[in-house]
């Protein structure tokens, strides 16, 4: 408890030192959730945890509070379309649900599903949850009560990321070990729409144009689709030699895109992906674990350099300041609509 308190204090201090303004006037519509490892890369399971890893929430972009249990592997947080207080979590222990913003939890999956990495709920069929697993894709049709494996057609079914086309129920794209797969029948059948040589780590649908999809991969660079993910083309100017972790749209500006990766640093595009600018300067290293764009604060970026504080930029990456934590690896930075 001592540790946690001091961490929180330190986070607040950092936030204050960073001097980025609280969102006072226009109260943000989203909470920021950070899924972080705070105890260093040497942390092993079963070991004593010197710091409380897991999910943190910031409601004011200044302070963070620890949410729920303190695991060193939490991969993704998403909101619950059925309840503003609901959260779904992809964690090492499985898909986990909280109905009370993280006070209590229930693991939804069983022994046969480990380490879900990607999680998505179909906005057109909100009982349907898709989880990307190291050995396939699991689908629940009943909000997580029961699960079925549905990755027929996928060779090498390691699945890192799941994105659901918001325009059509049951139309889902999955980033897997050897490419991007598409289903149009709720995961009953899948087809390869874009092969890759290694894992696709992120896959996003544009908030501005639902036909546009954006993906980043391990060794195939970044990919772009303008036909709802049916065909893809490499994004020029994005190097292939580094593992890319995140590729995200700016919800406030259709031209703006961000991506990051290991040794790739942080790149932004302000012209819809045609050209890319390196905005790593100001960050302590080029091993950028994850990035996020604030939906409530135009131009505000978050980046998690490996084992460093989570940084914030108010100017889309031109200038950076440490915001949260001392040494963190953020598996995921995500915004969930506030209740």
């Amino acid at each position: 408890m001592q540790t946690l308190k001091s961490k929180l204090f330190f986070a607040a201090l950092l936030a204050a030192l960073g001097g980025h303004a609280p969102i006072g006037a226009a109260a943000p519509k989203h909470d920021l959730y950070l899924s972080v490892l705070l105890s260093g890369p040497g942390q092993i399971m079963g070991g004593r945890t010197p710091a409380l890893s897991g999910v943190y929430r910031s409601t004011d972009r200044l302070k963070v509070e620890h949410v729920g249990f303190g695991h060193i592997r939490m991969f993704q947080v998403i909101g619950d379309p059925h309840s503003a207080d609901g959260l779904y979590l992809a964690a090492l222990n499985g898909v986990v649900h909280s109905k009370d913003r993280g006070k209590t939890w229930r693991i939804l999956t069983g022994w046969d599903m480990t380490e879900p990495k990607g999680l998505a709920i179909d906005p057109n069929a909100t009982d349907h949850i898709y989880a990307g697993l190291p050995d396939g894709i699991a689908v629940s049709r009943d909000r997580g009560a029961t699960w079925a494996r549905m990755n027929g057609g996928i060779r090498r079914s390691y699945t890192q990321t799941i994105t659901i086309d918001r325009t059509q129920a049951g139309r889902v794209l999955a980033g897997t070990e050897l490419g991007i797969y598409l289903t149009e029948d709720g995961a009953r059948t899948w087809r390869l729409v874009q092969p890759t040589t290694e894992t696709t780590y992120d896959l996003r649908q544009s908030p501005h144009d639902p036909k546009i999809f954006f993906a980043v991969t391990t060794s195939s660079g970044a990919l772009w689709s303008e036909d709802r993910g049916l065909t893809w083309k490499p994004i020029a100017g994005v190097p292939k030699k580094h593992t890319l972790h995140n590729g995200v749209f700016d919800p406030s500006d259709a031209r703006r895109l961000v991506l990051c990766g290991w040794d790739a640093g942080l790149l932004v595009s302000e012209d819809g992906g045609r050209t890319w600018l390196d905005r790593t300067a100001g960050l302590p290293n080029r091993q950028i674990w994850s990035v996020a764009v604030d939906p409530d604060q135009p131009g505000r970026l978050y980046a998690s350099p490996f084992q460093q504080p989570v940084y914030v930029s108010e100017d889309f990456g031109l200038n950076w300041k440490p915001a949260f934590f001392e040494k963190a690896t953020a598996f995921n930075l995500t915004f969930v609509p506030r209740p």
């Binding site: 399971m45 729920g68 249990f69 060193i72 222990n93 480990t114």
Partner: peptide
């Protein structure tokens, strides 16, 4: 909440 781990011994 203990971690379930990622190996068979866990």
């Amino acid at each position: 909440m203990p971690l379930r781990g990622d190996t068979e011994n866990h």
